[in-house]
């Protein structure tokens, strides 16, 4: 693997909120076009880690690189889907998805001073949004004109993913996007995420490098993490920090990092295939009685292993 194929990289990242130590010496490298799921106990800092990639939080120490460049604030190249507040309430479904194209491609002076050019462009944006929504299973003309409050939670998250994807971001970040959904809805959205794998593959085959998206998904469902991702990363405060000379937990760190089998959409996922990996993830990240060296379950990247400790 060459350096060029690394999309997201975190090197010796520490994060504290005041006296509170949240993340400790996180080292991660995500491949371009890869699907990573982040799992860990509640409150361990999964969202914090994600927001440092997004750019709304700064690491206390260490560096976060996306596409080789230091993350500095928000960017149109990194899309986000939140669990709540995922859509703009004052825009219809179609307008929500076209919104990014409008903001990205035009400016307020352009829209005010060149109304005819803007109207022509607007039509193109709406067509693009309609195509993308059809692709995620929301092509029904009536749905397109709905406001977010008229949609079910599952539809809202579909729209939110389309809204982020219309930007063709290089990184798509999802923070427990299906956390509030019932099981059936969750499964249909998981199939939609798996569809992104296929889209990536097609883009790669057709040489459309800019259309390849790297996905980072935060979830508390281990099965979901294994099913959707080609790499599962476990973050946890349950590691043997006492044996490493700390008298209080210096924060959560990467305790698990392994590839996961890739499932094709519509391929019935075999639950039994997960069981072994599932047990391993639980031992590594979720079980507070098992405190092992964090490198124990990290096999994917040699580079993920920390080289210097306590850098902050």
């Amino acid at each position: 693997m060459t350096e060029r194929s690394i999309m997201v990289s975190m090197q010796h990242v520490h994060k504290r909120f005041g006296p509170k130590h949240v993340l400790f010496d996180v080292n991660l490298r995500f491949e371009r076009g890869g699907f990573v799921s982040l799992v860990g106990p509640s409150g361990c800092g999964k969202s914090t880690l994600l927001y440092m990639i997004l750019g709304t939080l700064k690491p206390t120490a260490g560096v976060v690189l996306v596409g080789g460049a230091l993350v500095q604030g928000l960017s149109r190249n990194r899309g986000i889907v939140y669990q709540h507040y995922s859509l703009f309430p004052h825009l219809t479904v179609l307008e929500n998805v076209a919104f990014g194209r409008m903001l990205d491609a035009t400016s307020i002076p352009f829209r005010v001073l060149r109304p005819f050019a803007w109207r022509a462009l607007r039509k193109r944006h709406l067509d693009e949004a309609r195509d993308l929504l059809t692709h995620v299973g929301l092509g029904d003309p009536q749905t397109l004109q709905c406001y977010p409050h008229q949609l079910s939670g599952g539809m809202r998250q579909r729209v939110a993913i389309a809204q982020a994807m219309i930007m063709k971001p290089s990184v798509l970040l999802l923070d427990e996007p299906f956390g509030a959904l019932d099981q059936a809805t969750r499964e249909s959205l998981q199939r939609m995420i798996l569809q992104l794998h296929a889209d990536n593959e097609r883009a790669r085959a057709e040489g459309r490098q800019d259309d390849i998206v790297t996905v980072v998904l935060v979830t508390h469902e281990i099965d979901e993490a294994i099913l959707l991702a080609d790499k599962v990363v476990g973050v946890s405060q349950y590691w043997n920090w006492r044996e490493q000379g700390y008298d209080r937990c210096p924060g959560a760190t990467v305790v698990y990092s392994k590839p996961a089998p890739i499932f094709k959409p519509d391929h019935e996922a075999q639950h039994s295939a997960f069981v072994e990996q599932r047990q391993e993830i639980i031992r590594a990240a979720m079980d507070e009685t098992v405190l092992q060296p964090p490198e124990m379950y990290r096999t994917f990247w040699k580079g993920d292993a920390p080289t210097a400790r306590g850098a902050a």
């Binding site: 709304t56 709540h84 309430p89 004052h90 809204q163 971001p169």
Partner: peptide
């Protein structure tokens, strides 16, 4: 207006003026 929506506007390529004019003002109207 939730922080999430303001942050999301920036990820969609909004300028500061657009965040005010296209996100905040319509929502507080």
């Amino acid at each position: 207006v939730p922080d999430e929506l303001i942050q999301k506007s920036y990820t969609l390529g909004a300028s500061q003026g657009e965040v005010i004019g296209n996100v905040i003002v319509p929502q507080i109207l």
